[in-house]
Design a protein around this nucleic acid. Structure first.
Lengths: 127, 127
DNA sequence: TTTCATGCAAACGGTTTGCAGCTAT
DNA sequence: ATAGCTGCAAACCGTTTGCATGAAA
């Protein structure tokens, strides 16, 4: 554990999740401009290998990380207009997922549910 | 509509969906080696703009296309070991998704549900 | 001729890697 | 001294774009 890694990890955990590597890099740079993105990427890879961060790729080309400590499964509502991301959790959906998987002989290790649409804010301020 | 575009479109629809651009490119090249990937990409973009193909990015870095003609919403079970993809459909999950979205004031335009795990085949032939 | 698609190669953007230098054992 | 991390820059890989050629109307 080096100072660089500690700063990167702290920065990562300070966020609410759904953080892109670039986000972390920029935030880290404000405090330690000499840290390069290579170190950021390498550290995030370490964190995800260690199981404390999990990589989540939304459709937008670059990878996002979120803390893996959380015990709740949660999924995402994504506004395609403003990019805002809302988390939600629904036990009934979860259990239906398990049922479906079992029906196909799958042992599910992870899942990803994303609902894309227009959030209420963007719907009200439509031009 | 040019011969190239026709071949690419035909090749695309010959597949069962979840086809990567590279897949299409390779298949097309067997029949018409002079077609470049630029044309493949451009044609796939056209097809998705025309609404007959829809772009779906799984987490693996490159983009996949599937026919958009289909009326059923379907989701995916993905084996993380052999990469096999199974489609499924579950109306109860669909309706729960709508409920959740409504609760957050979202108007959902699209959704994506992916379950990752180990398929029955890989579970049985585990080494 | 004008238009527009093609094929090639170069560019792009996010991520990874090689490598020389630096730290801390 | 040696092991291993850093920072830089170059490489990488899937995708996009610029441009000269070529076919069609």
């Amino acid at each position: 554990m080096t100072p660089q890694r500690e700063l990167i990890a702290r920065t990562f955990f300070r966020n609410k999740g759904h953080v892109s590597a670039e986000d972390i890099y920029k935030q880290v740079q404000k405090r330690a401009p000499r840290i390069g993105f290579a170190t950021t990427y390498r550290t995030m890879k370490l964190l995800s290998e260690a199981g404390v961060a999990s990589l989540r790729s939304f459709g937008d080309g670059f990878s996002r990380y979120e803390p893996a400590l959380r015990t709740d499964h949660h999924d995402h509502l994504i506004c395609t207009q403003c990019g805002h991301i809302i988390e939600f959790e629904d036990d009934r959906i979860e259990s239906l997922q398990k049922t479906v998987a079992r029906k196909h002989g799958f042992r599910v290790t992870d899942h990803k549910l994303e609902l894309y649409g227009i959030c209420s804010h963007c719907r009200n301020t439509k031009k």
